[in-house]
Amino acid sequence: MNNLIQIKNFSKTFGDTKSVIDLNLEVKSGEIYGFLGPNGAGKSTTIKTLVGIYKKDKGQISINNIDISDISYKQYIGYIPDEPYVYEGLNATQFLRFFAEMYSIDKSQIDEKIKEALGTFFIDEDINLQVQDFSRGSKQKLIIAAALMHNPKILIIDEPMVGLDPSASAKFLSYMKNFTSNGGAVFMSTHSLDIVTKICDRVGIIDHGKLKMEGSISDIEKFTKKNSLEEVFFEIINEK
């Protein structure tokens, strides 16, 4: 299995605050990687740097073996933020079309892709309504649909289940499983230890910008001699 995400000695500072310090991690194809940590630990900074929102201060980051200084890597990622926002004056179809054009999807395929995307996450709202009139959950579903439309190889997700109802959550979890079994990779940050335990192949725990522990859940439990990921997590966090 090849590495789809590779981070080496990555550091990021905002003013006097060191947000991420010498981070090293890899995510292989077929893998769901859960990135855990308390608020302000550096999870979102890492994710936002991976997708190009922030610039790295130090280190090397490559996605699908392309250094992130080369913008072409973005074609391989699908990003789902915790708070979606783009042109709320558009309706759902126009919103998805905007994404399709941004990702240079072949014009002849756009309509079909939109139909498929709308169907996959059964968006309940009237698709002719403006996005600003959608509920929080429907907005989130729409942003998930938009992120998947160009068939990315890697999904980068910040808080995947925020705003989703139980049935949409279950559907999305099964989608992620399916996605990775077809060779894709998922890198997600979350506060939900339940979700991590349920679907993640490997986990990284970050605190104060430093990666404190990494490995499969069973390896981590074995190594720390704890009964659950929750116990491990709290012990690491309490170390401070």
């Binding site: 190009g52 072409s72 933020p81």
Partner: peptide, 15 residues
């Protein structure tokens, strides 16, 4: 300047 709500645009394949 990129405000919080616009950050998402930078994740698109857009220079």
């Amino acid at each position: 300047v990129v405000r919080k709500k616009e950050e998402f645009l930078l994740s698109l394949p857009l220079s």
